[in-house]
Design a protein around this nucleic acid. Structure first.
Lengths: 231, 231
DNA sequence: GCAAAAGTGTTGGTTGTACACCCATGG
DNA sequence: CCATGGGTGTACAACCAACACTTTTGC
């Protein structure tokens, strides 16, 4: 029986759903699609889909993200599998949830073939979603809050060159706290993970801030010598 | 077609594997089973099995653990799904990995129906395992190292009443470091998470140490008021 | 000059680290 | 009386939080 399965056919019992975070103007957003057909037509949902027999689950997540939203080459990690027997009303489906971090401004959103709409929502202004998607989203947000403090992943939400205030606002939006400017800067300065681009902001109506880049290679080096990112 | 599926029949494309940690005499162990039949007969593997249509994935993990080893009512959390298309040679199977923490001394191991042997192995003395199980084990060990520092889960590996030295040795075994006795004790003292049982060790050939219990209720209370466990 | 954000400095309290020391018990 | 682990104390360095302050720029 197994031999009859084609590499391109889908695994019936498994799906993928993605919690995609974006950041713009000091606000943390998440990306939702509106279903254009099927039993959930007209309702908002996490972007997702099916896994084929020929691809890994990770690859399926990448493919789906690209086809539903046009987004590729981004930070994408598995959250976990959600396996309640009644989570999906039509039949038994276990979903593997992923979360992604993207710089909103880099992408023009294109609704994919089964989506009638794609849109960013502020994290605090999310509509009711289908199935257990609100629960998956909550889990993803918790994971982001945790990860952002222990690994330098937040940079994926910012443009390549950013100001220290943008970075601080990012952390404040994710962790839902206020931070002290001076202490925040000192802490990041000590880590040696930021490269000063020696450029300034343009077109701002106040003193222009210095622009920085995240130094990935330095992070790899420091990690090897036992350094632990903590914020 | 979906309507023909019985609640007790298994989901073909999904399995479960468990990384079960134990602790004894200052050593961190993991539990392996030797397959008694099938294509992997005679080889060591993580305990695992199949999910039925009627149960959640979490429940399936609990059930399998119980039937394969006799162990129940323990700390059990999902790691993540492993979904390489070639990880399982016979057909396409995605496995959902779990990790568990148990007090070795509480359980007499009973090989389950398809296992010819069950045995604890020191974490540094693990044989080659079937499929991608060594990779899953590594991932689980990394997760344990991380979690044990940020949540008070290590207590699940100890007897209900334990000495401070046992606790320190547990952390040293998991994190693979040496710690300073005095500083370790001070840190735990400040957290207020340990109840002094006002009992002493018995039958030891040196000064008897005080026994402590982990105060779960206090932890819940302190968590609510914003406390974060860190070690 | 005022608003808005950039960027620096100071200070006191808390924590972490390394190490030294005394105590109790069984053999 | 000594080996083994139990248990406490100290002192310096590093770090953190709070706050005040000066600088630059566009309008």
């Amino acid at each position: 029986m197994e031999n009859l399965i084609q590499p391109g056919s889908i695994i019936e019992a498994l799906s993928i759903d993605c919690v995609i975070f974006g950041f713009k103007d000091g606000k943390l957003d998440i990306l939702l699609v509106k279903h254009g057909e099927g039993i959930s037509e007209g309702k908002w949902a996490l972007p997702g889909g099916w896994i084929t027999y020929g691809e890994s689950v990770d690859d399926a997540a990448k493919r789906l993200l690209k086809s539903l939203t046009g987004i590729s080459d981004i930070y994408l990690e598995q959250l976990k599998a959600f396996g309640d027997p009644h989570r999906f009303p039509v039949k038994r489906v276990v979903t593997v949830a992923y979360y992604a971090l993207v710089n909103e401004e880099n992408y023009a959103l294109i609704p994919g073939f089964t989506a009638s709409d794609v849109q960013w929502f502020n994290i605090h202004d999310v509509p009711p979603l289908i199935y257990d998607h609100n629960q998956i989203l909550d889990y993803g947000f918790k994971r982001l809050k945790h990860t952002v403090r222990h690994e330098p992943v937040g940079f994926n939400l910012l443009p390549e060159k950013f100001t220290l205030l943008q970075l601080q606002e990012l952390y404040e939006a994710i962790l839902e706290t206020k931070m002290d400017k001076s202490n925040f800067r000192r802490k990041l300065g000590k880590m040696k993970l930021l490269i000063n681009c020696k450029e300034k902001q343009k077109d701002v109506s106040h003193r222009a801030a210095a622009l920085y880049k995240f130094d990935k290679r330095m992070y790899v080096t420091l990690r090897k010598s036992g350094m632990v990112f903590e914020l």
